[in-house]
Structures are given as structure tokens and as C-alpha cells.
Amino acid sequence: MALVAALGRAALALFREAGGISLLGIYVALCLLRGRIDWAELRRNLYKMGVISVPIVVLTAFFTGGIMVIQSGIFVRRFGAYGLLGWGAGYAVFREVGPILIGLMFSGRVGANNTAELGTMTVTEQIDGLRALAIDPLPYLIVPRVVAMMIAMFCLLIIGDAIAIGGGMIMSNLLLDVEFSTFYVSFADNVKLWDLWVGLIKGVFFGLCIALTSCHFGTSVRGGAAGVGRAVNDAVVAAALLIMVSDNLLTMVLR
């Protein structure tokens, strides 16, 4: 009986959070449709979330491209399929590895930071302070963050994809003695623009998931500093889960 009760509680909590995230998404969409967004906050968040994230994304992407080559190196050598390296690395990075790894990195850095910031603002009554000053926190605080995270993910993915392909090219030259031109021809002849777009669409969607989860958990914090810690934890787990689930769905839709 206790097990059933615990399962029931967990299910209720899951649906409560899912409902909260969905409702926030609808409110954000309504604000955007009415053009209610604070542009100064958007610019500030684009810098804070996008520009500041470039170094960590570049580092992650470079090694991601390298790992793709190292993992496939054994088979490429065994079958002498050096001409497939560029295609393999490009296809995998553009469609899957790039969006997922950069998404998770973005969630850990920007999403967690956003939840902590909003959570602290909630427990220190800063959000109540905004409302008391007749300022709706949604267009002022939330909408700019959601839009900034979607734009930042799009831009960071373009940079990350380019760096990952560069990293793969350098690693295949250093480890497998594959000429840059061989790698490039394999990449350019086989990878299509649509492959890049699939990754970018996924990235923007992941940005939306990270933004909505981090904003939802940040603004629903209860219980002081401990509550902020729990919210950050919940937001990162929920964002990772949403990234994985939506990746499956988007992969099926965007063939």
C-alpha cells in the first residue's frame, strides 16, 4: 500500500511539474505574440548566456570531434575506409552528438545558473519586489531568458559544429594520417545542409526545454537556500530528461 501511495505521489509531482512547465510555455508564447518582451534584458541575457558560453562550447566541441575520430579510427583503419571519416564525423556531429553534448553542457552552465538566480530572486522577495513595482515578471524576467537561450543555442551550435569538424579533421590527421583534403572531400560530398539544419532545429528546441525547466523550477522555489539547491538539481535533471526524450521524437520526425 505504501508503495502504491509513493508511486501516486511521484506521479502527481511529475504531472504538477510537467503542467507548470507547459503552462509557462503557453504564457511565454502569448507574451511573444503580443510583443511583450524587455529588449534590454534580452540583450543582457544574450551576452550572459551566449557570449560567455563560447569558450566552454569551443572546448567541448573540439574534443567531441576528436572523440568521433578516435572511436571510429579502429574500424576505419581495419577496413581502410579513410574516405568515410569526414562523412561519419560530420553526420554524427551535426545530427546528434553536437546538439546533445552542447545542449547538456548549456543546461549545466546556463540552465543551472538561471534556476539559481531566479530561485534566489524568489526567496529574497525580488520577484515580489518587481510585482509590487507594477512590473509583470513574465515579459521582464522570463520571456527574455527563454528567447535568449533559444538564440544562444542556435549560435553556439553553429560555432560548436564548425569547431567539432575542425577537431575531427586535426585528430584524423594526427592519429590516422588522413590528409585534410581527404577528410574535407568526404565531408563536403556526403554531408548535406539538411543534416546541419536537423541539428540546429534540435538545438533550438533543447534551448526552449532548458529555458522553460530552469525558469519554472527557479520561480517555484520554496524554502530558502536548501530550496534553491533542490530546484537547481531538479531543473538540470528535468532538462536532461527532456533533451533525451525530445531528441528521440525529433529524430523520428526530422529524417
Binding site: 530572486m121 525580488q126 509590487a132
Partner: peptide
């Protein structure tokens, strides 16, 4: 506000 609610 009791906690001042200043924007950090």
C-alpha cells in the same frame, strides 16, 4: 520589503 528585495 522585510528582506529589502533589492536587485542583486
Amino acid at each position: 520589503f522585510q528582506n529589502n528585495a533589492l536587485f542583486d
